[in-house]
Amino acid sequence: MTRVWFITGASRGLGRAFTEAALAAGDRVVAASRNVEPLAELEGRYPGALVRLPLDVSDRKAVFDGVEKAVAAFGRLDIVLNNAGRLLLGMVEEATEEQLREQFDVNFFGAVWVTQAVVPHLRAQGSGHILQVTSMGASGGFASTGMYAASKSALNSVSEALAMEVAPFGIKVTILQMGGYDTGLFTVGTTTTEPDPRYADLRARLAEMWGDDAGPDPSTAVPAVMELIDLPEPPARLIVGGASYDMVLQMEQGRIEQYKAWERLSRLAPG
């Protein structure tokens, strides 16, 4: 059966890769982005299968209006991919209120607005799959990316609650903990704080640790997710990326070992 996708952040990176993959599979796509001009070529290549939707996900009213247009275009929604995101790069002390709010407005609230807008439609049809794009690093903070991780961690928590709430209506929810792909997040999608010179040494160590590798092409993430959406019982979480899988397991194991090391102190409290 031909499926209908609603994809945010569709004009570049992972959003663009999944838009192309869905169209190539014979599905139809409502591709939402602040700038939809880069999608014009795809619209010509797949006539009648792609609707370009200019959308700022941080604008709740615009999101609800956009979802109504999407449903009107193709009559239903089957897969909702909350992919739009930004990166605030800098130390916690350096971040301004405006920068922090913009980070959460896009990464967290934007995904929540889309979710709120699509759930009534998915519930009415008794089916649908919401894919929430978060990060392999969302299980814990890391120097200079703490605000980004916080916004994605918040989305993780809300999405786990959402999955429990909508399961009785036939709606599935999967958190996609994406690895590091060359999506442009660290270039066009990045806002940086004003550097405090007291963090210069730490910044130098981080730059050396990360190197210049931008990561694999976003299209390499497509096969895993395309197989995922065909599963009758998809997982609630999926780490997308082999190297990222190893890193997440290592981080989780380290956290478990720390809990156990301080078990005696934890058990001093009765709660």
Rank of each mutant, 00 (worst) to 15 (best):
R34Y: 03
A24V: 07
V29F: 06
R34N: 06
W5T: 02
G126H: 11
Q103K: 11
K69M: 12
L14V: 05
R52V: 07
M91C: 07
A143F: 14
E37D: 15
Y148K: 01
V63H: 07
L23E: 04
V4S: 07
L81Y: 13
A84N: 08
V29I: 02
G75H: 13
D59T: 12
A72M: 11
K69Q: 15
A40D: 14
S58D: 09
E93P: 11
A149M: 07
L55D: 07
V133T: 06
V106H: 06
A84Y: 06
L100T: 12
A111I: 13
V112L: 13
A84R: 00
A21M: 02
A22Y: 01
Y148R: 07
G128T: 10
R12Q: 13
R12M: 05
D27P: 00
L50E: 15
A124T: 13
A111S: 14
G128C: 05
L87G: 04
V63M: 10
I130W: 00
I79M: 05
E68V: 11
G126N: 09
V36C: 09
V92H: 07
V112E: 14
Q116W: 12
F108H: 10
Q103S: 14
N107I: 03
P54D: 12
L87A: 08
G85A: 02
A10C: 05
M136D: 12
A10F: 02
L42P: 02
V114E: 00
L131T: 02
I79D: 01
K69P: 05
V51N: 02
D27I: 08
A150M: 10
E98T: 13
S139A: 13
A124S: 13
L89Y: 13
A40K: 15
A72I: 07
P38G: 09
A22Q: 04
A124K: 14
A70V: 00
S127P: 08
G137S: 14
L88K: 05
A117V: 03
G110H: 09
L100Y: 04
M147S: 14
K61I: 12
N107C: 08
G85F: 00
